[in-house]
Design a protein around this nucleic acid. Structure first.
Length: 423
DNA sequence: TCTGGGGTCCTAGGACCC
DNA sequence: TCTGGGGTCCTAGGACCC
């Protein structure tokens, strides 16, 4: 008997976080926009009922927003990240181990809890989360992560389950899988779904019953493992320790298109600065930095250009000033005049823990630089992001992104904590 | 006419996820 | 006018080696 796995998933997470601090958002349609206020990335149940889809561009929704009085918010990742810690803390006593899978989903290893009524156990956990954060959740229980995902999806959609679905039993999951569209299975995207449909495979049940060899031919080892998971054979473990990350990126769309090299370097310097901060937070150094920028791909009638260059960082580094210098070298090589750039970014690859990095003969004043970076992080951490900047970041920042409807930092900034008055 | 048979490493790109 | 920002894993194919 394999250990039970649960997936707890927050409902309409970003909207639920916003509602935790603004009761006026409860019971009305609400959407939260992507960075740069571009498209809808979270919708309340009321907004979903109005036909608003994930990723709908806001400028296509103006009429609906007006007619139905939809509340529109910019995203507030500081708030959502902080609320996530609280959600996970509320679950802590209910599982032996965890894998935080995304900002609103956590896999739980329930081994050691098998002798309990796991549905009641999960209900108690949901209640705890709701009590500490007000956030509504659903829970799926099964023998593998893929089945727990599926269980979670039906717990959310099918009212009979009332928010908690336990599909460990073969009989319990048979009917559910026969009715579950194959394109909604975790790991089956558009391309794979089309291939499977062409073979007459349209449900999770049919995918489970597909021959392994055929699965491999259609979707490589990835699909083969997925089929095993649907059969209740784990091939994707709950990762209890956070795996070493392999790359990281800081990329943004611009509020206004960028046409000059100096302005582009302003943005790239800012991203490289942030990338350095992220590396240092995680105790990592990078071996390669890629700079890229491109024009608006949604406007094929305009002149298009996409440039990118990769610079090898030798020695490996997490020094923001060196990252900026590398970003500049890459940008100089990739730059073309005469285009309106709408997005740019920095990607770092081949990350290694900084105490494991190979030493070289030419490191010079590495310690001094480390202390400078420490000081920079502390100043900006304490007094705000834009306190200490490099000259290349510039001061005009016409490229900075739009975020016109962002809620306050309710939980992470003393200046913005909510005030409550009692009469 | 006809041009070996392995390896490894690296990169680009596809597919998928939230 | 206006379309997010992160990540992961896998494969194919080229460069290079013996």
């Amino acid at each position: 008997m394999t250990a039970p796995i649960a997936l707890i998933d927050c409902n309409n997470y970003y909207v639920s976080c916003e509602r935790a601090f603004d009761a006026r958002l409860v019971g009305v349609p609400v959407i939260v926009l992507s960075n740069n206020d571009g498209c809808a990335i979270a919708r309340s149940a009321e907004a979903k009922a109005l036909g608003i889809k994930m990723g709908d561009p806001i400028h296509h929704l103006r009429d609906k927003v007006r007619v139905h009085g939809i509340r529109v918010l910019s995203s507030n990742y500081t708030l959502y990240g902080d609320m996530q810690r609280r959600v996970v803390a509320a679950c802590e006593a209910f599982a032996r181990d965890f894998e935080i899978y995304s900002i609103d989903e956590t896999f739980l290893d329930l081994s050691g809890f098998e002798d309990r009524d796991l549905v009641a156990h999960s209900r108690a956990m949901r209640e705890q989360v709701r009590l500490w954060t007000t956030i509504p959740t659903c829970v799926g229980i099964a023998e593998t992560k893929t089945l727990a995902k599926l269980a979670n999806a039906v717990a959310k959609k099918d009212r009979r389950f009332d928010g908690v679905a336990d599909l460990r039993d073969d009989d319990a999951r048979h009917d559910v899988m026969q009715a579950f569209p194959v394109e909604n299975v975790w790991g089956v995207g558009g391309a794979t779904a089309r291939k499977l449909n062409a073979l007459g495979i349209e449900t999770a049940g049919a995918l489970r019953d597909m021959p392994m060899k055929q699965a491999r031919a259609v979707g490589t080892v990835v699909l083969e493992r997925l089929v095993a998971e649907l059969r209740g054979v784990p091939s994707n473990a709950v990762e209890k320790v956070e795996p070493q990350r392999k790359g990281m990126a800081v990329t943004r769309s611009f509020g206004t298109p960028v046409t000059t090299f100096d302005s582009m370097m302003g943005a790239l310097s800012q991203y490289a600065m942030r990338a350095g901060e992220k590396l240092r937070q995680h105790g990592l150094v990078a071996a390669r930095l890629t700079t890229f920028f491109h024009t608006n791909r949604h406007k094929p009638e305009r002149p298009q250009y996409a440039g990118s260059r990769t610079i090898v960082l030798h020695p490996m580094t997490n020094d923001s000033l060196e990252l900026i210098a590398a970003a500049r070298r890459g940008a100089e090589r990739a730059w073309r005049d005469g285009y309106a750039y709408t997005k740019a970014g920095i990607m770092l690859d081949d990350l290694v823990a900084s105490d494991m990095r190979p030493r070289t003969l030419f490191e010079g004043d590495a310690d001094k630089r480390d202390r400078l970076m420490d000081a920079l992080d502390q100043i900006n951490g304490r007094f705000g992001k834009w306190t200490a900047v490099t000259a290349s970041q510039g001061f005009r920042r016409e490229w900075k992104l739009r975020s016109e409807m962002r809620s306050p930092a309710w939980t992470t900034s003393l200046a913005e904590v909510p005030t409550v008055s009692a009469l």
